[in-house]
Amino acid sequence: MDFPPYLGTMPMHAITEIHGEPGLLERFRLETLAFDPAARGRLTEALDLATELHRADRRVREPYLNHLLRVAIRMMHHYQVRDVDVIVAGLLHDAVEDHPVELAGRIPAGADPVPVALGVLADRFGVRVARLVAAVTNPPWEPGRDRHVQYREHVAASLDREPWARVVKISDFTDNGVGVIHTVGPKVVSSARKYRPLVPVLRELIARPDTPLAPAVKEHIYDQLDLAEERFRAILDDPRDRTAS
C-alpha cells in the first residue's frame, strides 16, 4: 500500500480514518527508525504479541490494535519517549487486563492468571515492563462499589509510585478521552462518564516534578486534558442548564 510522504506528521486519527491499521503500522515503523536495531527488535516483538493477543478484539468501529498503536506512537512522537521499556508497556498495556489466560498459558485450575501473565511479560520483556503494565492494569470490580470511583482511586494509587506508568496512562487516556468524538453509539456517553472524573487526577500526576516529561510535553498534555474536558462537557452537560444560567 502506498502512503503519502507526510504520513509521519499526520494526526493519528486522520491516519486511522484514511489508511486504517496499515497506515498506523507504517507510522509506527517510521517512529521506530529513531531507535537502534536491538530496540526496534524489542518493539517489533511487543507489537507481534499485542497483535496476537488482540487479533479478534474491536473498539466499536476499528481493530483494537489501532488503539495500542496510537498509544505507542503518541509516546514516541508527541512525548519524545525513547525509553523502550515504556513503549513496550504501552503496546501491551491491556494485555494482562484483557487476555490474562491467553498470555499466561497453562495454569493450575482455580489459579489467578494475572500474576502468571505478568510473570510471562517479565520473562519476555523484563521485570520493569511487567511492573509498568501491572500499574495500568485495572483490578476486578468490587461488587457494591461505584465502578468509576473504584477506577479513579486505583489510577491515583497505582500511578502515585510509578512515574513512567503515568506516561503510559496519559497516552491511553488521551486516545480514549480526547478521542471520544471518534467513536459512536452508547460508548460515547459511557466513556465520557468514566473518564471525566479522571482529568484532575491525571493533571495533578503529570504536574509532579518526578513525572519524567519535558516541560513543553507537559504543556501539550495539559492542552489535551483541557480539550478532553471540553468534549466531556459537550457530551454530558444538558445545554438547557447552561442556557438557564
Rank of each mutant, 00 (worst) to 15 (best):
D2L: 13
P4A: 12
T9E: 10
P11V: 13
H13F: 15
A14L: 14
T16P: 00
E17P: 03
H19A: 12
G20W: 11
G20F: 15
E21T: 11
G23F: 04
L24T: 00
E26V: 13
L33S: 08
F35T: 02
P37H: 11
A38K: 07
E45F: 07
A50C: 12
A50R: 01
A50K: 01
E52L: 08
E52W: 11
L53Q: 01
L53C: 02
R58W: 09
R58F: 09
V60K: 11
P63C: 13
L65R: 01
N66L: 10
L68A: 05
R70H: 11
V71I: 15
V71L: 04
M75A: 08
M75D: 01
H78K: 12
Y79S: 02
Q80I: 05
Q80M: 05
V84Q: 04
G90P: 00
G90W: 03
L91A: 02
L91R: 00
E97Y: 13
H99M: 05
P100H: 05
E102D: 14
L103R: 12
G105F: 09
P113H: 03
P115V: 15
V116A: 13
A117E: 03
A117C: 10
V120M: 08
V120N: 00
V120P: 09
A122Q: 07
A122S: 09
F125H: 03
G126W: 05
V127H: 10
R131C: 03
R131G: 09
L132D: 00
V133R: 01
V136P: 00
N138H: 11
P139E: 15
P139Y: 06
P143S: 04
R145D: 05
R145T: 07
H148G: 05
Y151Q: 13
H154E: 08
H154K: 07
V155F: 06
A156F: 07
A156I: 02
E162C: 10
W164H: 04
A165F: 02
V167Y: 03
V168R: 00
K169H: 14
I170F: 11
D172K: 08
T174K: 08
G179E: 01
V180P: 00
I181T: 14
I181D: 08
V184L: 10
V188Y: 05
K194P: 03
P197S: 02
P197D: 06
P197V: 02
P200Y: 05
I206P: 00
P209G: 03
T211V: 14
T211L: 06
P212N: 08
A216S: 13
K218E: 01
I221S: 00
I221N: 02
I221L: 14
Q224P: 01
D226W: 08
A228I: 15
E229I: 07
R233A: 12
R233M: 09
I235G: 02
I235K: 04
R242V: 14
T243V: 15
A244C: 01
